[in-house]
Design a protein around this nucleic acid. Sequence first.
DNA 1: ACTACCGCATGACAGATGTCATGGGGGGCG
DNA 2: CGCCCCCCATGACATCTGTCATGCGGTAGT
Lengths: 204, 204
Amino acid sequence: MTRTIKVLLAEDQSMVREALAALLGLEDDIEVVAQVARGDEVLAAARAHAVDVALLDIEMPGATGIEAAAQLHGELPELKLVVLTTFGRPGYLRSAMEAGADAFLVKDAPAAQLAEAVRKVLAGERVIDPTLAAAALAEGANPLTDREREILRAAADGSTNAELAATLHLSQGTVRNYLSTAIQKLAVRNRAEAVRIAREKGWL
Amino acid sequence: MTRTIKVLLAEDQSMVREALAALLGLEDDIEVVAQVARGDEVLAAARAHAVDVALLDIEMPGATGIEAAAQLHGELPELKLVVLTTFGRPGYLRSAMEAGADAFLVKDAPAAQLAEAVRKVLAGERVIDPTLAAAALAEGANPLTDREREILRAAADGSTNAELAATLHLSQGTVRNYLSTAIQKLAVRNRAEAVRIAREKGWL
DNA sequence: ACTACCGCATGACAGATGTCATGGGGGGCG
DNA sequence: CGCCCCCCATGACATCTGTCATGCGGTAGT
């Protein structure tokens, strides 16, 4: 071992974040040198601490871990990126890889894989759950257009067509048309199911 | 200190569970003697290891942490119960307390509160976030009847009235009536919003 | 230039959803 | 016992939602 691996930890739930830090702290060759709770604080922290690996949770306020990964990949290309998430959604894996992630871990994998992944990415390897990789490939790409995604996201809270039309500056008919095409693309029967399926696949 | 506090840890995500175990392992007076990943394995594990405190996540397969708490409270009344959750929903707090919980923690509280809470409940104290307690009181009790909750839960995935009627062995009109009253009680405008609000409040 | 797709819109229609009035059967409580 | 609430149901009505045909302007790819 030449020197310890410096890790940045980004995760919004303090208890989980500090617990993960404790876990990594048990490893001799790993040191958690920075912790942040928001996606939009990741870049600054990474710059300030000269880290080797960034560990990014996806679900965070400010910016998602995937958005943070894309930023880091652009600004600090040397930095290795491990994306960590609760939900093993194939669409998440796909976006994470497109954002430049080197590893993709789900939180219900054994804890030992975390330190493992940190070492592997530093050695230039990629770490991806094979089951998830297969699922991502089997599923194909996101069939929704930008606009359809946007409207589906806005419809997720139960807004009516009138409200959607108002907030998105569209006519009601247009809103219904977009929802209709989204419903057909996802092969479901109403907007509620469409939202659910799109969420599950990580397409929202 | 007489002897170490024996803790049972129930949490479905391995990485989080083992990380929390690592965190508690740093404390001299606390020992994690058992770990389970399912709600329906909690009771057996508690019996097998003579634990002092059970740490229960709410969101688990098999049975929720709240259901597990109720079981433990009935079978092993001496055992202290700490309920841990991602979501600070007032309705969760209420049900947890009714199930006999001694402490209620949200995962975005500082990690130090975890060991803290374990010690306090063993000393006979109750640990509840004051903000959350206030919210729980302000919100009042769940206004939904059993049937309304059941139907709302079934409607959450986007099922149509016809499907709901079939699975619940009701007429379509009855389904609509229940949804209508639920919608009015929650002061919203459609089933999707009703599901969302009921979820947020922990009433589902 | 032609084609294809996207974003946006309108109008018309069928079917789903939400509301309301009404009523029967049951349990609990004063 | 009367009252209230819950569970279940029906029918009628108004509105919302989803579908389809059609059209226009813009942007990309071949």
